[in-house]
Write a protein that binds this DNA or RNA. Structure first.
Lengths: 248, 248
DNA sequence: CGTTACTTTGAGCCTGATCAAGACACGTGG
DNA sequence: CCACGTGTCTTGATCAGGCTCAAAGTAACG
């Protein structure tokens, strides 16, 4: 379970790929030392469940690499994704014992975990951590509200276009590109995961992707590799007139 | 616009009805004094818009009394409510200049406003404020995720039952009652506002309320006064098996 | 090759949207 | 007091977008 050394030889935070975006982003050298004392890495294979909703969770964590999802499931099996966790995103809630959602690794995932109790103590004494966490939580809340508009009011076609736009934008900004004109990226989600994200069935997802392809809004190479010839066109299809602040 | 003295004679926080739940909940006497220096009251009539999305917002605020909504609107007029603001809820985002959503007073509303700049400075120096705001934001994020399940996966009937359950539960806890058995409350929203909350049309809302009435899940006196004979039954209709943590 | 997971496509149905009309409550002015 | 207007809500008839059920195509892998 703890294969940190295999994947991230450094226990040292200074070389960490998410150093400047994660919950530790604002920490100074001394604060990082305190964090290092309570941290450990865990890795998960694609498809593996990190925690089950309701389970006791004795750690909080940052996603270092890979993609995980937060999902809710009703008794009859209907599921809704409520969070998409990308590198640097934070998992778990300080001050709560149990997990509120299922956390599932969609790809192979590495997490930087902090033992919860000492992390909570650090939050009291180290304002930089709490400040950054507040900022990240506010961003997530904005993303959740954007997502609510998608779920509540958009058509299936607009939902797909919105999701593609979100992924395309994130991918572009990660590569330090301003999202416009032609973009290329890989879908990190199966059709079923996309359906759970958007409140659709996987058949509808498949059909709408085919429709967008047929209409030239996107070009597919294989099932997962997407080329967007004109990002503005995609935004129009998403119903976003402005290049609005959809963030993940 | 500033009719504070009419409605809340005390500029003094100690007698404030939301003293123990708002963003200032953890503040001590001294911290409250600092807040009092930068605060002022504003009141709004039912139907009035507090701020428009995109507008500059030079304050943050707590709802003292009344109900307001956060809504997003697409160019073609489709609207989705993304937040329901009740007494003690917080409005605005520290560190952002413009409003991200329309804020509309659904009933007559009184807000306790803080000038943004000095409030942001206080957040740096007064950890109790930032701590409380983090807690509140995490709660809102949980509520938003619960809401996403409602929007994405529930049927119209379940959506209505879910909303009624949320309002009933909040109303009950406000009156220090454990929500179970028979509950009585008033709907603070029009059918249209409920539709915007749930991603439905107002006709569907009306029909489903009639259906729940016909099936004895609720009893109506007038359009807005609701009697729930059996709260457990309502939760079943909502698709929530457990008495899960739906919060507003 | 055969298995398995993922995806696409088709046919028919159903839930909720749309369009339309009327009911009800309330206030205003003649 | 009534006529009228307005905002809110209810109900009906019809339509269509997305779901369900079903089958077949594709690719990776042992």
């Amino acid at each position: 379970m703890l294969q940190d050394n295999m994947i991230f030889p450094q226990h040292d935070c200074s070389g960490c790929p998410i150093r400047h975006r994660a919950v530790c982003a604002r920490c100074d050298a001394h604060e990082l030392e305190l964090l290092e004392e309570i941290k450990y890495y865990r890795s998960f294979e694609a498809g593996q469940t990190v925690v089950w909703s309701g389970d006791r969770m004795d750690f909080v964590a940052s996603v270092v690499s890979g993609i995980a999802t937060l999902t809710q499931t009703m008794e009859d099996g209907r599921t809704q994704m409520v969070g998409l966790l990308l590198p640097s995103d934070f998992v778990g809630r300080p001050g709560r014992d149990g997990a509120a959602y299922d956390v599932v690794a969609t790809s192979d995932v590495v997490m930087c975990c902090f033992r919860k109790k000492p992390f909570e103590q650090l939050m009291e004494t180290t304002p930089h951590i709490a400040q950054r966490l507040l900022q990240m939580t506010l961003d997530e809340l904005d993303a959740a509200r954007e997502w609510m508009l998608v779920l509540g009011r958009k058509t299936a076609r607009e939902k797909i276009a919105s999701l593609l736009a979100i992924i395309a934008r994130r991918d572009a900004t990660l590569n330090l590109i301003t999202p416009k004109g032609k973009l290329v990226f890989d879908l990190p989600l199966t059709r079923e995961a996309m359906a759970d994200y958007l409140g659709l069935t996987l058949e509808t997802v498949s059909r709408q992707i085919s429709a967008l392809k047929r209409d030239g809004v996107i070009v597919l190479e294989g099932k997962r590799h997407v080329i967007v010839p004109d990002f503005t066109r995609l935004l129009e299809e998403a119903g976003d007139d402005n290049d609005g602040g959809l963030l993940v």
